[in-house]
């Protein structure tokens, strides 16, 4: 009898050991590469988004991206050129491009609003974000857009509803010209 119990215990221990390993590996892989295996969920457009009650005042949200005159912008761009060029290096691919996210469709921002990508841009519902999206489908700190060298990347910050690039849920993706980024109900297009 005891022999049988000990055999069962031994196998139970080995099973637990490998179950533990499998769990940690799965979670770590998901942390590293994002849920790549899953097919992209159907666009939420299919079911109509919850329409705010008509009596509710629609609060116009102005993104707190600093306003800049063309002159200031040019100055900033030149400064950036200086910042990013190593001594003795003159090639700057950024010199003549102007990376920005353009709002295509959104319940909270006017279509056509442009968000210039300078430094790290935090996107979320939290009022401290650089770009505030007051949308119930957007997490407090939802995503961020970060420059790496001369490229821009969008990174999901563990949001509840995910960040979608060209219809696929991503953890991190490079922004190429005309890439479509959806965060909550807002769709952006990347332009340079």
């Amino acid at each position: 009898m005891l022999d049988v119990i000990l055999l069962v215990l031994k196998i139970a221990f080995l099973v637990l050991l490998f179950a533990f390993v499998a769990f940690v590996v799965r979670r770590t892989v998901r942390d590293v590469s994002g849920p790549v295996e899953h097919p992209a969920p159907a666009p939420r457009k299919a079911s109509p988004p919850p329409v705010p009650a008509p009596s509710e005042p629609v609060v116009a949200v102005v993104p707190n991206v600093p306003e800049a005159t063309p002159a200031e912008r040019r100055k900033r761009r030149e400064q950036r050129h200086v910042d990013r060029t190593m001594p003795g290096e003159s090639l700057d691919l950024m010199a003549h491009i102007d990376p920005r996210l353009v709002v295509e469709a959104s319940p909270v921002l006017a279509a056509g609003t442009e968000v210039r990508l300078e430094g790290w841009i935090m996107i979320g519902r939290s009022p401290t974000s650089d770009l505030v999206l007051d949308d119930p489908f957007v997490s407090q700190t939802h995503a961020r857009v970060v420059p790496r060298g001369q490229l821009h990347f969008v990174e999901d910050l563990g949001s509840t509803n995910g960040t979608f690039v060209n219809g696929r849920e991503v953890v991190e993706a490079q922004l190429l010209l005309d890439t479509e980024v959806r965060i909550g109900e807002t769709i952006f297009r990347y332009e340079e």
Binding site: L9, A12, L16, F20
Partner: peptide
């Protein structure tokens, strides 16, 4: 949750050694 799982595994391991030595749980 993982610690709970480890707790179960540890108990199994310890109980096995004890049972093998003293023939009882």
């Amino acid at each position: 949750w993982l610690l709970a799982l480890v707790g179960v595994a540890a108990t199994i391991a310890y109980v096995s050694v004890y049972a093998a030595r003293f023939h009882e749980i």
